[in-house]
């Protein structure tokens, strides 16, 4: 008897679910941003219930037909619950299908992150703790990053791509990683601007605006360097060129959105006031432009961070620095002697 040929492939389902998790988390971040934009965090005073109803049983017509703040806040909770269910589904598929054991641990880790995130959201409501709201707001993108990482490492390609040794690969990896970290730091700085305490006084806000601008400039430089390195430095794999180009394009859009966010919230800077339309511009509080541009700016920040992380992961996976000193005895060998 001959045994059937050995099959080393994994089930495609974990990867599909991981991608789905990314696709569900991004809108969740967006709606979470809307909650902050509309100051709707306290539109539902209880948790995990909504006005006494079980989250999933809250009547549709009072949700959709109710006040906008309640619509947004309850919607955020429902979407959050959906992401939680997806995370559970992801865990289950890794357990039920054939896949590396560490995926299961990673899946459990992701589930833990959602649970913590959900708890933070709940505690923020129960204690009306605004700083916790900010923490919750910064943790969301972190979870999104985790989803992106899971989607990346569970893909078929990840297991089959050959590792290439390349000159400068170490530099590329560091640059990509640092760009991703910068993108996340920028999210944290931005969250301080959105969640600033109303009794903080002007200096605090001023300092954070300054750093937000400095990190924006640093990001522009790093994304430019990274794109140049990928496109012209011998790393022109479509697995890198595509996301890195997308990051560059999105970053440009993000700069425009940042400027628009400022103008729609605080009006034009003084230097423009001798020109139309700045001279006659009236800020429309919670107007369509203000609310959506601001929220989009926040959401796009997370997308940039997710993609930058993807670039960093793939750069690490695809390229290895050339081992130049392989003939020299390593320290471990010396120590063993």
């Amino acid at each position: 008897m001959t045994a059937p040929p050995l099959d080393h492939s994994c089930s495609p389902w974990p990867h599909r679910l991981a991608v789905l998790l990314c696709c569900a988390t991004f809108p969740l971040l967006w709606v979470g941003g809307l909650v902050t934009t509309y100051d709707a965090g306290m539109a539902v005073p209880d948790w995990p219930n909504t006005y006494g109803y079980n989250l999933f049983l809250y009547p549709l017509e009072t949700w959709v037909g109710g006040p906008f703040d309640l619509f947004v806040e309850h919607g955020h909770r429902l979407l959050g619950a959906a992401v939680g269910v997806l995370a559970i589904g992801f865990c289950v598929t890794t357990l039920a299908t054939r896949c590396p054991a560490w995926w299961r641990w990673a899946a459990a880790g992701a589930l833990l992150l959602v649970i913590v995130q959900g708890l933070m959201g709940g505690l923020r409501v129960l204690f009306d703790a605004r700083a916790l709201a900010q923490f919750h707001g910064c943790f969301g993108p972190l979870f999104f990053g985790a989803c992106v990482a899971l989607a990346a490492v569970t893909s078929t390609g990840w297991r089959s791509w050959p590792v290439q040794e390349a000159k400068g690969a170490g530099g590329l990896r560091r640059l990509a990683l640092f760009t991703a970290v910068l993108a996340y730091v920028q999210i944290v700085l931005g969250s301080e601007l959105r969640h600033v305490r109303t009794d903080a006084g002007p200096r605090w806000f001023q300092t954070f605006v300054l750093f937000h601008l400095l990190v924006a400039a640093a990001l522009v430089v790093h994304v430019a360097l990274l794109s140049a390195r990928v496109w012209r430095g011998g790393f022109r794999s479509s697995k890198l060129t595509r996301p890195v180009t997308l990051v560059a394009v999105l970053l440009f859009a993000q700069l425009c959105l940042g400027g628009a966010t400022w103008v729609t919230n605080y009006g034009w800077p003084d230097w423009f006031k001798d020109f139309f339309p700045a001279a006659s511009y009236v800020v429309q509080a919670k107007g369509w432009m203000q609310a959506n541009l601001t929220t989009a700016h926040m959401a796009l920040g997370s997308l940039i961070w997710g993609l930058a992380l993807l670039v960093a992961l793939r750069a690490g996976r695809l390229y290895q620095p050339r081992a130049t000193h392989s003939v020299q005895p390593t320290r471990a060998l010396g120590a063993a002697a």
Partner: peptide, 30 residues
Amino acid sequence: KSDKAGVHTGLYREHCAHCHGISGNGMGPT
């Protein structure tokens, strides 16, 4: 805060305090 009927309280802190300051001294964060 806001309730089921959409009645908002804390309006000043939601809409004004980040510019005009909690005390109305024009020294809000922005």
